[in-house]
Amino acid sequence: MKVSLEQFDKAFENRIRLQVMSVLVANDNYDFNSLKDLLNVTDGNLASHLKALEKEEYIIVNKTFVGRKPNTQYAASQKGVDAFKKHLEALENLIKQQKY
């Protein structure tokens, strides 16, 4: 059954972006390497999706150094949390629609 994708957030069309967002909504912040471990993705892949979310202003990036190693922390912005909630609602509505 094909349904319209209008209500869906384009930024979350990609599964990894949606997954990143769910981790950041559930936690105050998360660092790059832990995200990579959790989602089981490559450096480049994760970086490009994080860039995309950053461009949408859905996440806040905080770059620091631990010793000499870069330690980048990511957090969800209010805009990102709202967008995520809206996306989930859209998914929910879709399921409800299909039940009837």
Partner: peptide, 10 residues
Amino acid sequence: SIRNLMERST
């Protein structure tokens, strides 16, 4: 998958 990730990350 969202649910699972939220749980595993917290």
